[in-house]
């Protein structure tokens, strides 16, 4: 039973990196990608390009970021003895991660709520900064986890971890934008960068898997969790598939392309 829950944890962690990775990467690259589109002679202002890019990822964000919420829940439920030492040991990094995450989300939710270039540009900057914060703290967190939670996680190894995650996320975000925006294409490249984005997470989990297994909840608790979560799993998968089917580029032409985006 512990093995199954370790697998759940792995799927959620790697899935989060592979999926939310492109949202974060696109957020980081928002100014650069908008400038690139402008230079390429696409019609519209720089703000229009940013709107288009954000609208491209908007339908996916809610379905992607929730993988991390589920991951934290699984940690509390199935590996409770691990949750405290892990979050306590990563205290400043987890606080930074949460603040960055909230700011990135606030940028998304608020940017279109008031018309006017100043308001939107301001929240776009918050979105971009929050995305950078997310990538860098994730890198530092993975680096700290692999090294057994050092007292001072803001060191060279932490920075290096941040740089690696930032690099794979920006690649992934770029690939997603290319796949999603017209002329849409490059699904296999998106798949490849997805694997790449999931790699740092998978590697750090592989290093620590034995340690994680030793902190599983009692069999009774794991049974209850499995009994309730298992029947719902097909629905979870179906809901995610539904998102991808609904918002894939092929479905986004004609009238659907003119529907204003809420984010």
């Amino acid at each position: 039973m512990e093995i199954i829950w370790l697998a759940v944890l792995a799927v959620l962690l790697v899935g989060y990196f592979a999926l939310e990775g492109f949202d974060i990467g696109l957020g980081m690259m928002l100014p650069a990608l908008a400038r690139a589109r402008e230079r390429a002679g696409e019609p519209g202002t720089r703000q229009d390009h940013r709107d288009l890019l954000v609208a491209g990822m908007a339908p996916f964000v809610l379905a992607n970021e929730v993988w991390l919420v589920a991951l934290a829940g699984t940690l509390v439920g199935a590996f409770p003895a691990l949750e405290g030492p892990l979050l306590g040991g990563l205290y400043p990094l987890v606080v930074a991660l949460l603040v960055a995450w909230i700011l990135r989300d606030a940028g998304l939710w608020f940017r279109r709520r008031i018309d006017g270039p100043g308001w939107r540009a301001c929240w776009d900057a918050v979105l971009c900064a929050g995305s950078w914060g997310l990538a860098l703290t994730w890198g530092a967190i993975l680096a700290a986890v692999v090294r057994g939670l050092p007292a001072q996680p803001f060191d060279l190894a932490g920075l290096l971890g941040g740089a690696v995650v930032a690099a794979v996320f920006t690649l992934h975000g770029r690939a997603f934008a290319a796949w999603r925006l017209p002329p849409a294409g490059g699904a296999s490249r998106l798949l490849l960068t997805g694997v790449l984005a999931g790699l740092p997470a998978a590697a750090s989990l592989a290093v620590t898997a034995g340690h994680v297994l030793g902190h599983a909840a009692s069999p009774a608790t794991l049974n209850v969790l499995g009994f309730i979560a298992l029947p719902v799993t097909p629905i979870l998968v179906a809901a995610q598939v539904w998102v991808w089917r609904t918002f894939r580029p092929a479905r986004s032409t004609g009238a659907a392309a003119r529907v204003p985006s809420f984010f």
């Binding site: 589920a70 829940g73 909840a217 209850v224 979560a229």
Partner: peptide, 16 residues
Amino acid sequence: GAPLAIETLVAFFLES
């Protein structure tokens, strides 16, 4: 932890 985990996996994941 059990009800918290179920909340995130079964409820909030789908809600979002």
